[in-house]
Nucleic acid binder design. Structure first.
Lengths: 208, 208
DNA sequence: TGACAAACGGAGTTTTCATTCCGTATATTA
DNA sequence: TAATATACGGAATGAAAACTCCGTTTGTCA
């Protein structure tokens, strides 16, 4: 995975987003249609094949020219960012739902379970979590911050309900999720494996 | 990370080794010296900067020409493989030591701890574990198999000593290790994080 | 120490992509 | 429906890296 940069700087497979929430002026009808279609295709392709897919192919599958992709998303990274922002939005909504519907004891664990299950079929989720990595040097903003806040809310509730040991921080959760999600994708042969790993994780997080 | 392949096949960032245990005929003195030096430099470079480092640079740092690197290691992947084989050898030795010195209750956990600690400073270890991924389609051979067997021995002992729940399989351990190692590397800012994660993991693995 | 096989170095080749550019096509709107 | 700003397509560009080739150098051994 990892986007190939044409100039300099060896790539360290981390992605830094600016979380630009740009206001969109009125697009011509065909333009809007194409933009949407590209985003849709990119979402599917990144999810199933990872980041290494060339832009040419995304353009092809979306039935548009390369130029069109680039007009809407100035770089490959920008396209990817757009996909991730969408996805995080989705996760945040799910989490909020769980916060309301489930009790504090289970909301957190249900969310972990959701994330890990999704990660077996969606490679983009991993990048999504990764981009929420707290970098110490570059504080989170925009949707990444929202995502972290939501996760924090879930965690706090669970800790108040005494169902998660309280030395755990959001960063720990993010780190663990990121790592495990990443490995699920490797070992997708054994269908029970995610279950077992999830149960190990949950047991470990519970207070002793 | 992931090696850029010149021809076809989109890269999926998984590495498949053949674990060739080649018998070495007598090399000329300078050749042996160079080979060793390249391997040494590659080990250090891969560990600290990951796989994305160009061969040119490894050659440069080793004080040899590119051609020399390629004469000893026909592809970049072969060079990487050689590094990993060395490293696995090292891990196996450590594990065997622990099997003898420590009691069954702690040997396994000590080994996990070792792996995770190493992974914070050695990015190659992650690839090492990854290459031990059971692929169902391609059974393990050579050193990867040895490594898995050793891990299995540690796990069995721990399970017999009732200190690890017994539905856990080696594959689970590999998956978890791989994942967590991967995440350590991302979040290397918080020095306590590895400790907490390790403790979550250990608690989770213990029988309920 | 001279012959020569074994190694060496590194310029050049090849491949893969991201990204740019510009001539052509088409929504929009008056 | 004509004028025109917007978009479109995709060939061309450029850069990064892996890998090859061959003229030059050097260890080895008689």
């Amino acid at each position: 995975m990892s986007i190939k940069k044409p100039s300099g700087s060896r790539d360290n497979e981390s992605v830094n987003f600016t979380d630009t929430t740009s206001e969109q002026k009125t697009l011509r009808a065909d333009a809007r249609r194409n933009r949407e279609r590209v985003l849709e295709v990119a979402t599917k392709v990144f999810a199933t094949e990872g980041l290494a897919v060339p832009i040419d192919e995304i353009a092809g599958r979306a039935g548009v020219g390369i130029g069109t992709v680039y007009r809407h998303f100035p770089t490959k990274e920008a396209l990817f960012e757009a996909v991730i922002v969408n996805f995080k939005q989705h996760l945040i909504e799910k989490a909020e739902e769980m916060l309301v519907q489930d009790d504090s004891n289970t909301a957190f664990y249900n969310f972990l379970s959701l994330m890990l299950r999704e990660s077996t079929v969606n490679r983009a989720i991993i990048a999504a979590i990764a981009s929420s990595a707290v970098n110490a040097h570059r504080p989170l903003t925009g949707i990444s911050l929202d995502f972290q806040n939501t996760l924090e809310k879930l965690l706090k509730h669970a800790q108040e309900a005494k169902s998660v040991r309280d030395d755990i921080r959001v960063t720990d959760v993010t780190a663990i999720l990121f790592g495990l999600a990443r490995s699920m994708e490797q070992y997708s042969d054994d269908p029970e494996l995610p279950e077992r790993i999830l149960s190990v994780l949950c047991d470990g997080l519970r207070r002793r």
